[in-house]
Design a protein around this nucleic acid. Structure first.
Ligand code: MN
Ligand code: MN
Ligand code: ZN
Ligand code: ZN
Lengths: 151, 151
DNA sequence: GCATAAAATGGAATTGTTCCAGTTAACGAA
DNA sequence: TTCGTTAACTGGAACAATTCCATTTTATGC
């Protein structure tokens, strides 16, 4: 049975068709999950997708996340000390603010807009395509609590 | 036999004593290795230290690297998709240029000097302590070769 | 409806790192 | 200089996140 057997066409599904790739229920569910949980890690996405579809392999979710990243529908962000996060906001070149205590990640707009938004002082012969900026600090909730990592 | 049994006092040893921690041959060797191989990963450091001392446990090297990081004698840098690198250049807040193909990492001076060297456009209540900037691109050697990852 | 290639599955394997319980050794005190 | 304390090291197992692989399923074009 092909995926599209009658139900309404979702935004995720339209975006996948727009990318000219096969539309599977796993892909639709993963893309929806990323959009529902911005900056979530793979475990969160897997749990959400299983809640939606029932049995789905871990590998399928990883494959889909990679595919979506490559087709530009999600953006993989990997802050130090954390599993990769998946960001539904694509097409601009915004940056991130990450809490050292709880790991919360929020968007920070880029002042310049286009990548790379910064020029290295001396590029040493490198051709630079991107400036990845992560601001580290403490989120509002964690400023009151001690600086210990989240349990 | 205590570590310091007659040989000349190295810079690494002096720096460790300055940090008021026990001076062990493993710590001296790891700090020397990081200084000899800037931005090397743990495997490289482990190999170098074993060449220097003979049998040393993997765990000891990881422990030492953490300790050195905490005491501010080395800086741990973790670019996406690569094991952590260890940087002997500390005390300033420089940034890095990383090659997408071969992983080479070189220093980029920070224009402003002090951390955080950038202000997020809107901090959303976060207290920001650091702006980590990684410039991604292709190193001089890799610009000629194809964009495939190093094998 | 059928063929085909792309995608999903299940399970094992890898990588980088950490945990743990027991042993060793650095160093301050005697 | 020896001794006791405790930090540091060892070996080995465990772990988390991710990837590899062979097989099966399924979306899509004809
Ligand atoms: Mn984002
Ligand atoms: Mn550096
Ligand atoms: Zn927080
Ligand atoms: Zn390169």
């Amino acid at each position: 049975m092909p995926y599209h057997s009658g139900m309404t066409t979702s935004a995720a599904e339209r975006d996948l068709r727009g990318a000219a790739v096969r539309v599977t229920k796993q892909r639709v569910a993963v893309l929806d999950a990323v959009r529902r949980h911005p900056h979530a890690d793979a475990d969160t996405i897997i749990a959400d997708v299983r809640g939606e579809l029932g049995r789905v392999s871990t590998q399928a979710v990883y494959d889909v996340l990679h595919a979506l990243d490559e087709m530009g529908l999600v953006r993989r962000v990997a802050p130090a000390g954390s599993p990769a996060r998946y960001d539904p906001r694509v097409g601009d070149n915004h940056h991130h603010l990450v809490c050292r205590r709880c790991g919360r990640m929020v968007d920070v707009d880029c002042a310049t807009g286009a990548a790379p938004c910064l020029e290295p002082v001396a590029a040493q012969g490198f051709s630079v395509t991107e400036a990845e900026v992560i601001f580290w600090g403490y989120c509002p909730d964690c400023q009151s609590k001690g600086p210990a990592p989240a349990g």
